[in-house]
Amino acid sequence: MLNIFKPARHRASLPENQVDDAYKRYRLQVFLGIFIGYAGYYLVRKNFSLAIPYLQKQGFDKGDLGLVLAAVSIAYGLSKFVMGTVSDRSNPRIFLTVGLLLSAVINIFFGATSIAMSSIPLMFCLMFLNGWFQGMGWPACGRTMVHWFSVHERGTKMSVWNVAHNVGGGLIGPLAIAGMSIFAAWQSHFLFSSLNCCCGGDFCIFCLA
């Protein structure tokens, strides 16, 4: 396992009179971290679908572009299993953030360079990598939820946390419009959401204990 993912070092116990206040604060802080962090994953998951009409105008076949888009789902399914086993032995604070930032880097590469979209095989490989990094999100969030919330309250907390999917997915459209307005280029579908994703990564590092 890479050293960067090693579990956090043991911390000395707080004085007993500080435990209740600190525990309540940390639980809220951690919950916000995994909520905003996982919503961020959705900002850079399938931005490629927004670029398909523009790539068709450049001569790419719609069926081939659909195959590229499928690479995300294929890799995501595999990664969710493989990276889940790695996540169980990792520091979720780092694991969640690294996956989010790497996924953002792939999208920045798409938006900032013409090389990324020069051929179907290259686009497929990049989107496969994106899907693999996407698989690092859920395991870290699930592990954090188990550690910080008891069995009898987990259903309620998970249902609230699950709204992160909708928040992240719902923000893709407005961010794409905002990016087009600011940068006046369709590549901003990748860039603007990725920049916001990096802010989400910083928030995860700050919040997760």
Rank of each mutant, 00 (worst) to 15 (best):
G40P: 05
H165Q: 00
T156L: 15
M83P: 01
H10L: 15
L129S: 04
M83R: 03
G111Q: 14
F31G: 08
V82G: 02
G99V: 11
L32T: 09
G33T: 12
S119R: 01
S159F: 01
N47C: 05
L191H: 10
L67S: 01
T113S: 13
F203Q: 13
L65S: 05
F5D: 07
M117P: 02
V72P: 06
G99I: 09
L2A: 00
K62H: 02
K80V: 14
I172A: 15
L2H: 00
K80A: 09
I52N: 15
A209V: 10
C199I: 15
L28T: 08
Q134P: 07
P139T: 11
G135K: 08
R154H: 11
F110V: 01
A176V: 14
F48L: 07
S181P: 10
R11Y: 11
P121D: 13
F190L: 05
R89D: 09
Q134G: 13
S114T: 12
V163R: 00
A184S: 14
M158S: 13
G59W: 12
P7G: 02
G84I: 05
G66L: 08
M1K: 06
H10P: 05
V160Q: 00
I106A: 01
N47R: 02
Y26Q: 12
I74F: 14
F110A: 06
F128H: 11
G169S: 14
A22C: 01
L171I: 03
F183R: 11
R154C: 12
R9D: 15
C207W: 10
G179S: 09
G168D: 01
S114Y: 12
V160H: 00
Y23G: 01
V19Y: 04
N162Y: 03
V105I: 12
I106S: 02
N107W: 04
N107T: 07
H147D: 10
I34T: 10
R9Y: 08
Y41M: 11
I36R: 08
F183Q: 08
R11N: 10
I182N: 15
I172F: 04
Q58S: 03
G66E: 09
F35N: 08
V163A: 10
S87Y: 03
P7H: 05
V105F: 08
M1T: 06
I34L: 09
Y76G: 03
